[in-house]
Structures are given as structure tokens and as C-alpha cells.
Nucleic acid binder design. Structure first.
Length: 798
DNA sequence: TCATCTATGGTTTTT
DNA sequence: CCATAGATGA
């Protein structure tokens, strides 16, 4: 593993610690500008510390300053500090910030990383204690499910009624709680048709046999090792003088145990978090961990960071009003020095498409600058949704009006089909015994090796007690396979052997090798021959993958890295408005934030409430809190009375969270088309007269209590109507104004290409918008500038 | 073995 | 409605 240099990680320098303090006669510059609370959090170095850091209170700043302080005070060498984060991105940013605070590149911090990355390092050193070899492979979710599927099928369980995916979820859940098969409590015995525990046990055996681990194992194995081998634990307890944990409210039981075990040495643990931002309960995070901190670490110092540097007072007050409804909080009151600012804006719409239309226009008008306000760049605006399916309405709309956008948190780079395939090839080349990888690529691209041929290979391997690749060799030698399939398999097996030799050649550039593998295996050609619209993008991604190799010394190091890494944010092009889920937005901030879809059932999500009751509702509320607190200057909340869900029209009530918004901090905008604003929604945003807005606002606000949209005449009317069927089909729009300058050069029947939708045929033309029937994506209206002739698909103007 | 049809089910997501 | 996975026929 290339990023891990053992010598560096554990090299105890000969100079005594006390003398290794960086001579700092000058006052530490990293303390400049910290407020008293931050300063306390930075300077309280010894003993347990809980840093309760509200949204936008300079948490990262305090955390990095603390690390800098530890080093300059000579409290610990960089390699004696354990600093844990949840994402690689945050880990990387922290490293950068510490370096810049100290004004020099710190001799790396080998133990600053994600839980998983750190556990990989540790587990490689002690793999044998849990029956693994130190070169174990890390399975991704896909491999995990395929493995479980094999088990389920082998046990002749009906995989329809008992999907392997579900079993994967159950096992994950158990691993999150640090339960080995033997430790799964009897209360769980009914899981997966009473076979859950048993299958979990088989699965673990299978993993061991494959010398593989899944993500959950990384933590679980380390906890097991620490618990069963006190000598090993003691070594690390001694080594890690200071421990820092980011986003502590998101830790699960396994992570909690792991931390607690390590912290029992020096007891210098600083956990940073915000119970109000705990939004990952559904994947095993335990808010209880942070709520219990003072009990776990008696005498802990609790520091509250409450000065907010991000949002206006109205936004903070609105957020506070919502989160206040939750019980059992540790409690923080955010305040700000700012005095100016708009109230949180609230607007209701007839349906989801109108909401998208309105937001589209609002985004545009904000980026242009409106009502005497400074323009807000598209980069500074974000639409935060509860569920990713809500994104489509916005994508469709923005595509139509030609508003540049980016979707954050789509399929992760390393999760993409082509990347996983390519990785599987690399894995096979590096370790010929990686059966799961071989299974993945044996018939990708198609080699005429279908189920039957693969079963033969499996049998040959099993009968000879060897790997699949060797099984394939034996099968070929025995003439157990003939014809085209055999020839292709021969080529593949020979290729793999050759590539494997090349991985061992120190003179062989791994980058070239990777290209050779993808080329010779026919994988590149496979996508070149593919005419689907996504093929060019996939080839692009493969190029990216090759480029990413440059940062590594060899394929092994790269594979290691990619198994754990996720962020691949290649950003190009001009300013774009961001669309993402609320979960993805945590930790980010934007001057202008839109929060659509605040309807009961959607947000808070019905499923959360059904499955987790009050706990679920409270987590949803924290999500609302996270959403509002992302906004720096303008926060716009909206809801729609009707929404098409799975093709059916459904009406909904505004979210109960809307009732929780304190009236004094909310401005209710005219629900276009429903209340006071005439018929059309289009045009309301940018051209609504201030008088109308003001009138509607005072009308609604003169009422006692909350900014209660329920009681607005428009809302009532809407309610009455929505109990029936929507009157107006949402996609039916007024005639577009034809902009003569923009009239396109296309005519009906032209074959065209669109970057996202692929190839299609022009059906109709309306001004600068084309009605196109796409081969794959169906009929859509798209602005002409995003379209090119089909034969010029290479220079799409994106 | 591959392409096309049909049924199914459908938050949130990192590692 | 729409994406996707598994079953079915060529």
C-alpha cells in the first residue's frame, strides 16, 4: 500500500519529545482570531474533551489549530496523533490546513485518515490474528452481495423471498454494532428467516478463505484484535498520545468501541461533533455516543462552539425554531454578530413541476442580481432535496431552460460499472487468486463464456482445490471446453499470466501496464463499439482512471487506495448551480439555498417515521436543521400541493417542520397561481411586483402564531381542490415566446445528439426549444444550444 | 448466449 | 412513471 510508509508511521525519533517542540518564541499564529470558546477547545490538550460545534462555528478551524498546537507544544510527534474522520475528503483537507497553519509541510501525519483507512493499516500489520494474510483484499458492496448470493443459493434458499441484498444489510448492521457471528444476540435470531446468524457465520468463513474483508470487517476485526490481544492494544494505547475524532455524532458502535479501547491509554481524546447534525442513524450511527461522552470519560471538558460565522440571524433563528422541537439534545444556542439579512422565504406551489420552474427562474434572477441585491453566482446556489428522485424535476427543468447545474453525489466514481470492471482486471493481474475479480471479468466483454462455461470453470477449480484462473487452465488443458469460448478463455488466461508477470517487473510502468491490460483484454474496444449514449462518458472515466494512477507507485498501491477512496471531483466548465441531497450537503455552505419538497411524507419521510417512529422523525428534523443551516444569506423553503409519485398524482400537506418555523423569521411569498398572484406561475419569480409580495406576506403574517400557510386562503382553496384531482396538467405550459435570434437551424426529422440523452430525432421546433424524441431517453424538450447534429456528436457544447 | 420482454419495487450513503 | 433485474424466446 503506497500511501502507508511503516517506517514513517512508527519511527520513534531519537530526540526526546520535549526538545522536539518546534521552537516557538513567536506567538502561535494559528491562535490568531480564534474566539474564546475555540481557543479553549484548542488549548485544552490533556484529558478528554468534547467539542460541541454547532453548524458554521469554525469547527474545522479549531480542530486543525488543535493539531498544530499539539505539535508546537511538543505534546506529540505528528505520527503519535490519531485523527479520525469519516471521509477521505475531510482527511485530506485537514492535512492541508494543518500544514498551512504551521507554515510548513508537516512530516506527514500517517494516522490522520478515515476510520477505514486507519483500520486497513492496522489490520495489515495484525491480519494473522484474525486468520487473514496481510495482503487481504477489500471487497466492495458489489462483491459482497455476489458472495452472499452464492451462499444463499448454495443453501437452497429462495433468493426471491430472501434477497441476498437484504442479508447484506443485516450483516452490515451487525458489524456496525461490533457483533461477530458468535456475539449476535438471540433477539436477532429471527433475522433472514431464522438463518441470518448461521449465514453470517458462513459468510465470514468464506471471506477468510478468500483472504478478503468487507468494509464492516475493517472495524470489526480491529475491535476483535484489541479485545483478544491486550498486548497489541497496549502497544497502540501507548503510541497514540492524542486522539481526535471528527463528526463524533456519526460514529457507530464498532467505531465507538475501537476509539474507547485506544483512548484508555493516555485518555487524551477530543471528540468533535454536533448532536443536532446526527443524520446517519439509519446506517448505524448512534447519537447516544455523543450524548454519553461525559459518562464514558468522567471529568471530560465540554466546550461549546456557538458563535456562528455563516448565516444571518433570521436563518439561525429559523433553524433553532425547528430543532428546538427535538427532545434530549445537549443544547446549544447559536448566535452571530451579523445583524442584516433576509428572513427565510417560504413558498407553496401547485405541483412539483411548478416548484422546479419557479426555483429555476429564481436561481436565474438571483444570479443576475435582483431587487437591488448583489448577484449570486450559480456556484453559490444550491438546491437541497430529501431524496434523490426529487432531483429529476430540477434536472429536466434546468436542461430545458439551459441553466447549468451539477449533481453532487451521483454514482461514485469507483462504483461505476466501467471502473469496477477495470479494477477487477487490475486485481486479477496483481493477485491471480482473486476469484471474485475473475468472475467479474471472465465474460466482460462478452467472450462467449456464459453460465455453463463458468460453472465448468468453477467445478474445475473446486475439484482441484485451486483458484478460478488455475481451474480455467486445467479445464483448457483437459479439453473440457471447446470452440470459440475455449479460444477466448485461452487468450484471457494467457493475458492474465502475462500481465501478472508485468506487475512484478520493476521496470514496467504501471500506467502503461494498465493501458495494456485494458487494451489487450478488449475492454476498451468493448466501449468503443458500444453505441449507447453513455459509452463516451465511460471511456472518459477510464481515461480518468489511468490518470489517477499517476499518483501511485504501482497497481497494488492504487488498488488499495481506490478500495477506500471515493471522491473524484473533476470540476470543469463555468458556474453551475448545485443539486444534491441534504445528506450530501452536510459540511457545505452556500450563500443561497433552496429547500424544496417540504411536504409531510416526503420530508419528513414517511418511511423514516414508519420504521423508526419518533426517533426517525427527530432525525428528519435534524436533517431540516442541517438544510437550513447550510444557507449563508438566503434560504428558500418550498412545498408543492401535488406531486406525481410513481406516475400517480398525490396531494400532500406542507411539512410539519414548516409549522415549526418561527413566524417572525419567515417571509411567505405568494404561492403563484394559487393566491393573489394571478394564473401563471411562470414569471412570478422575477417579475412579481413588490406590492403583491408585500401584500401576501402581511396577509399571512398578521395571523396569530406561525407563518401558517395552512390558514392562507390560497392554501385552503388548494386543499379543497387537491382532495379531488389536479385541475391542470402540470406540463401544459403557456406558449413560449419565440426568440427569433435563437431559432435553431434544425428541422423536423433531423438526427441529433445530446450529451445527456444521447441520439434522437427532432419532432418539432418551438423557438429555440426543440422537441426531440430520444432513442433512449424518450421525448423531451431541450434548448437548441445543447444539441448538435448526430454526426458531430464529438463536439457537444458542454 | 444474447436480446427483448415483463415484473417489481421504489430514502438517505461512506468506506 | 421509470429503472433495473430476472425470465423468456431466437
Amino acid at each position: 500500500m503506497s500511501s502507508f510508509d511503516e517506517a514513517d508511521a512508527f519511527d520513534a525519533a531519537s530526540v526526546p519529545l520535549s526538545q522536539r517542540a518546534m521552537q516557538s518564541a513567536r506567538p502561535a499564529p494559528y491562535l490568531d482570531g480564534l474566539n474564546p470558546a475555540q481557543r479553549e477547545a484548542v488549548e485544552t490538550l490533556d484529558g478528554p474533551v468534547l467539542m460541541l460545534a454547532g453548524a458554521g462555528t469554525g469547527k474545522t478551524r479549531a480542530l486543525t489549530a488543535r493539531i498544530a498546537h499539539l505539535m508546537t507544544q511538543g505534546k506529540a510527534r505528528p505520527n503519535e496523533i490519531l485523527a479520525v474522520t469519516f471521509t477521505n475528503k475531510v482527511a485530506r483537507e485537514m492535512k492541508e490546513r494543518v500544514s498551512s497553519l504551521l507554515g510548513q509541510t508537516v512530516e506527514g501525519m500517517p494516522w490522520l485518515g478515515t476510520f477505514h483507512a486507519i483500520c486497513v493499516k492496522l489490520l495489515r500489520r495484525h491480519a494473522e490474528l484474525v486468520g487473514l494474510k496481510s495482503n487481504f483484499t477489500i471487497l466492495d458492496t458489489d462483491d459482497q452481495i455476489r458472495l452472499l448470493k452464492q451462499l444463499v443459493v448454495a443453501e437452497s434458499i429462495d433468493e426471491k423471498r430472501w434477497p441476498p441484498r437484504q442479508l447484506a444489510g443485516i450483516i452490515d448492521h451487525w458489524k456496525n454494532r461490533a457483533w461477530t457471528p458468535a456475539k449476535v444476540p438471540t433477539s436477532e435470531a429471527g433475522a433472514f428467516n431464522h438463518r441470518g446468524t448461521e449465514l453470517y457465520d458462513y459468510y465470514q468463513q468464506r471471506l477468510k478463505a478468500l483472504n478478503a474483508v468487507d468494509f464492516g470487517d475493517l472495524l470489526l476485526h480491529m475491535v476483535t484484535i484489541f479485545q483478544d490481544h491486550p498486548d497489541v492494544l497496549a502497544q497502540y494505547q501507548r503510541w497514540f498520545r492524542y486522539i481526535l475524532v471528527d463528526e463524533y455524532q456519526d460514529t457507530n458502535v464498532a467505531q465507538y468501541l475501537w476509539l474507547r479501547l485506544l483512548a484508555q491509554g493516555h485518555r487524551n481524546i477530543c471528540c468533535v461533533g454536533d448532536d443536532d447534525q446526527s443524520i446517519y442513524g439509519w446506517r448505524g450511527a448512534e447519537v447516544g455516543n455523543i450524548l454519553r461522552f461525559e459518562k464514558d470519560f468522567p471529568g471530560a471538558k465540554v466546550v461549546r462552539l456557538e458563535q456562528n460565522y455563516r448565516s444571518t440571524p433570521h436563518i439561525l433563528a429559523a433553524a433553532a425554531g425547528v430543532i428546538d422541537a427535538n427532545k434530549g439534545r445537549l443544547g446549544k444556542t447559536l448566535f452571530t454578530d451579523l445583524t442584516e439579512g433576509e428572513r427565510v422565504r417560504l413558498i407553496g406551489h401547485w405541483d412539483g413541476e411548478e416548484e422546479a420552474r419557479w426555483i429555476g427562474e429564481e436561481v436565474e434572477s438571483m444570479s443576475r442580481g435582483t431587487r437591488g441585491m448583489e448577484p449570486v453566482s450559480l456556484d453559490d446556489q444550491a438546491i437541497l432535496v430529501r431524496a434523490s428522485h426529487q432531483m429529476r424535476a430540477f434536472e429536466d427543468r434546468f436542461l430545458t431552460i439551459g441553466l447549468p447545474y451539477r449533481v453532487i453525489g451521483g454514482p461514485r466514481f469507483y462504483e461505476r460499472l466501467e471502473i469496477r470492471d477495470a479494477m477487477a482486471y487490475f486485481r486479477c493481474a496483481v493477485s491471480p487468486d482473486d476469484d471474485l475479480a475473475f468472475e467479474r471479468i471472465v465474460n466482460t466483454p462478452k467472450r462467449g463464456l456464459g453460465d455453463k462455461a463458468q460453472q465448468k470453470i468453477q467445478r474445475a477449480a473446486r475439484d482441484n482445490g485451486t483458484t478460478l484462473i488455475d481451474g480455467a487452465r486445467i479445464l483448457l488443458a483437459d479439453k473440457g471446453l471447446t470452440g470459440k469460448g475455449a479460444a477466448e478463455l485461452r487468450v484471457l488466461v494467457d493475458g492474465l499470466a502475462r500481465w501478472h508477470r508485468m506487475t512484478r517487473d520493476p521496470d514496467q510502468s504501471h500506467i502503461e501496464l494498465a493501458e495494456v491490460i485494458l487494451e489487450e483484454s478488449g475492454y476498451t474496444a468493448h466501449w468503443q463499439n458500444d453505441k449507447t449514449p453513455e459509452a463516451p462518458g465511460r471511456l472518459e472515466n477510464l481515461k480518468e482512471l489511468i490518470k489517477a494512477l499517476e499518483q501511485f507507485e504501482n497497481l497494488q498501491g492504487f488498488l488499495e487506495h481506490v478500495a477506500l477512496i471515493m471522491d473524484n471531483e473533476t470540476e470543469e466548465g463555468g458556474a453551475k448551480v448545485s443539486i444534491m441531497t441534504l445528506h450530501a450537503a452536510k459540511g457545505l455552505e452556500f450563500p443561497a439555498v433552496f429547500l424544496p419538497g417540504w411536504e409531510d411524507g416526503l420530508f419528513p419521510s414517511q418511511r423514516s417515521m414508519d420504521e423508526s417512529g419518533l426517533k426517525g422523525l427527530e432525525e428528519e428534523r435534524r436533517l431540516a436543521y442541517v438544510g437550513i443551516t447550510r444557507a449563508e444569506r438566503v434560504c428558500t423553503i418550498s412545498f408543492a400541493a401535488n406531486r406525481r409519485v410513481y406516475g400517480q398524482w398525490q396531494s400532500a400537506l406542507p411539512s410539519r417542520f414548516i409549522d415549526e418555523l418561527p413566524e417572525a423569521h419567515v417571509e411567505v411569498l405568494t404561492p403563484p397561481g394559487l393566491y393573489g398572484g394571478g394564473y401563471g406561475a411562470a414569471g412570478m419569480a422575477s417579475s412579481a411586483s413588490p406590492a403583491i409580495m408585500a401584500a401576501s406576506q402581511s396577509d399571512l403574517h398578521d395571523r396569530a402564531g406561525r407563518a401558517d400557510v395552512y390558514n392562507s386562503p390560497g392554501w385552503r382553496r388548494l386543499q379543497e381542490r387537491s382532495s379531488q384531482r389536479p385541475m391542470r396538467q402540470p406540463s401544459e405550459q403557456r406558449n413560449m415566446t419565440i426568440d427569433l435570434d435563437a431559432v435553431s437551424s434544425f428541422t423536423d426529422g433531423d438526427r441529433v445528439f445530446h450529451k445527456k440523452f444521447g441520439y434522437g430525432t427532432v419532432m418539432a421546433i418551438e423557438g429555440d426549444k426543440l422537441d426531440i424524441c430520444f432513442d433512449k431517453a424518450g421525448q423531451k424538450k431541450v434548448v437548441a444550444k445543447f444539441i448538435v447534429d448526430a454526426d458531430r456528436a464529438d463536439d457537444v457544447p458542454f
